[in-house]
Simulated assay, not measured.
Amino acid sequence: MSMRMPSNFGRPGEQESALDLLGHEILAEKAAALGRAGQRVEETLARLRENGGDEHRPQLLRDAAEAVHGYFIQRELCGLRKHDAVIREYNIPNAVLARLGAK
């Protein structure tokens, strides 16, 4: 199925620029969503590092794994397929990666 701008929208050049603006808005939202997902990873990993030795560790591991999984998905939606550098940058523990099936 293809989409076409309504004929009363304007001249063909204006239609193309309108589509370009929509494309930029979509890219901006993808970038913002990636930033939010990265922030969630940072927060959950910080909680895990601060409280990782107590009885809440299993829940903290689940939360961190869920955040990392969401971040990886968002990266892939943005076209970023390799996660090795991100794993090193965020210092994601092997216990979290194991829950994702990555290690």
Score class of each variant (00 low, 15 high):
A33R: 08
N91E: 09
A18L: 10
E25I: 14
L22Q: 09
N91P: 03
L27E: 14
A33N: 06
P6F: 00
H24C: 07
R11N: 06
A102E: 07
G13H: 05
E16C: 07
D84N: 06
I73W: 08
V68I: 05
R11M: 12
L100H: 05
P6H: 04
E89I: 12
G23Q: 12
L21Y: 05
H56R: 15
L27N: 14
G101E: 12
G101A: 14
D63Q: 08
L21K: 08
E25A: 15
R81I: 09
L61G: 00
R99Y: 08
E42G: 15
G10Q: 07
P12R: 13
L77V: 09
L97E: 09
Y71C: 03
G53Q: 05
V68D: 02
Y71H: 09
D84C: 00
V86D: 13
R88K: 15
L60K: 01
Y71F: 09
G53T: 09
S7E: 14
L22D: 07
Q15S: 03
E29Q: 12
F72P: 01
R49A: 13
G53R: 11
A32H: 14
H24G: 08
S7A: 15
E25N: 14
L19H: 00
F72Q: 00
R62M: 12
L21W: 05
S7M: 13
L60Q: 04
A31P: 00
E89Y: 14
D63E: 13
R88Q: 15
V86E: 10
L21T: 12
I26C: 07
G52A: 04
L97V: 06
A31S: 00
E43D: 14
A18W: 09
R62V: 10
R40P: 01
E50D: 14
E66L: 05
A32S: 15
L21G: 06
A95Y: 10
S7W: 11
L61I: 00
D20Y: 04
R57L: 05
I73Q: 08
L60N: 05
R75G: 01
A32K: 15
L80W: 00
V68G: 03
L27S: 13
A102G: 02
E14G: 05
G23C: 12
A65D: 04
A102F: 07
N8F: 09
M5T: 12
L48N: 06
G35K: 12
R49F: 05
E55N: 04
L60W: 02
M1L: 05
A33F: 04
E42Y: 11
D54H: 10
G10K: 08
R57N: 05
N51D: 14
R81N: 13
I87V: 15
D54E: 12
L21P: 03
I92S: 07
M3A: 14
